[in-house]
Design a protein around this nucleic acid. Structure first.
Lengths: 196, 196
DNA sequence: GTCTATAGCTCGATAGAC
DNA sequence: GTCTATCGAGCTATAGAC
């Protein structure tokens, strides 16, 4: 339970706290709210300390993307090797806190070159992993991979899930129930549950 | 060719120029770059004039959304009543300048209530129009509307197209060719060309 | 209707004490 | 490693001349 004063459980060093605080602020209030003063307050340190650990705010953002990306990739690798990878892919991309942060980085990347480079590399690693998992699942179920290319199926599942999350974030839910039912139906067609 | 000095062709009134300038800056450099000084310069007027026409910057953003939204809806209604509505829907949502501006508004809406309310109303009008067009197209081609609900098909087409545009904007194109080929194939299955 | 000028604020980033 | 203090810039918004 009790974390030591300088342990790495709930009270890690300031650098790590700054990275986590920045991710939290970006997710909850948008990247525009992630100023040096705001994230410092969130991490319980003073503003100037941000520039001790990170030369510029862009460097901090890149670090948030790297750290969060590694953890997300790890989570993804684990989830995509279970019984029902297609369903796992759908669930992962329906996680609002994950997709919300990702959306903020997409917006940031649109006008910050350093972020764009990093995000692009990350997005392609994600796609590779997701596509590999889908390839295994489709092949195991005898699906024709020419008619249903794994990269296409993985993009469809991931992007539709993220789009729904983005819409929910602004209050749009029209058609969502129908879409979720439709996706469940299609997933069962592609990979009927066999693990029973 | 020559527009009159105060005509409404290429040199409309200042208010209209401010709205168009704001849309341009948002699309090209992101909403964070759309400051009162920046959009005033782009429109060829001084900063204070922005506040003569719009009480706050949020009011200006809402006006950009309303004006651009009306014009987009008009364009959409026209395109969706032609021979091949499904394909038209796909093409409209592949227009990078349209989807780029829409993405900026989604990002803005995440932490500005006034924008969120307006965007939500607009998004639902768009979905209604798109769904109506898809309904007509599917019914005309004898598609089972229970198996393929129009609202789902319209969301799939529109959201996949927008997702591709968003990815292109940050330099990600992995799997895009396969996806575009796949979509063309699926659209032909749902609505084979009959107008020849 | 358009301008100049400015108040009041927040930002990124730096200097330097401890 | 963390702090206080501050600079210079850019922002929204307002006041008031023309």
């Amino acid at each position: 339970m009790a974390a030591s004063p300088k342990g790495r459980g709930s009270d890690p060093n300031a650098r790590q706290r700054l990275i986590e605080a920045t991710a939290r602020v970006m997710r909850d209030e948008g990247y525009a709210a992630a100023t040096s003063r705001r994230v410092a307050a969130e991490a319980g340190v003073k503003q100037a300390l941000v520039y001790y650990y990170f030369p510029t705010m862009d460097d901090l953002f890149v670090e948030v993307l790297r750290a969060g990306g590694e953890s997300a990739l790890e989570h993804m690798r684990a989830a995509l090797t279970n019984d029902d990878p297609l369903h796992a892919l759908w669930l992962i991309n329906n996680d609002a806190s994950r997709t919300g942060l990702n959306t903020e980085f997409m917006a940031l990347a649109n006008h910050r070159k350093a972020i764009r480079v990093e995000l692009r590399a990350y997005a392609e690693r994600v796609r590779d992993i997701e596509t590999a998992a889908v390839t295994v699942a489709l092949r195991a179920n005898g699906v024709d991979l020419d008619e249903h290319p794994p990269v296409v199926i993985s993009m469809l599942i991931a992007q539709v899930a993220r789009s729904l999350c983005n819409e929910v974030a602004v209050g749009v839910t029209l058609g969502h129930d129908e879409m979720r039912a439709y996706v469940e139906r299609q997933l069962k067609l592609l990979a009927p549950v066999t693990g029973g």
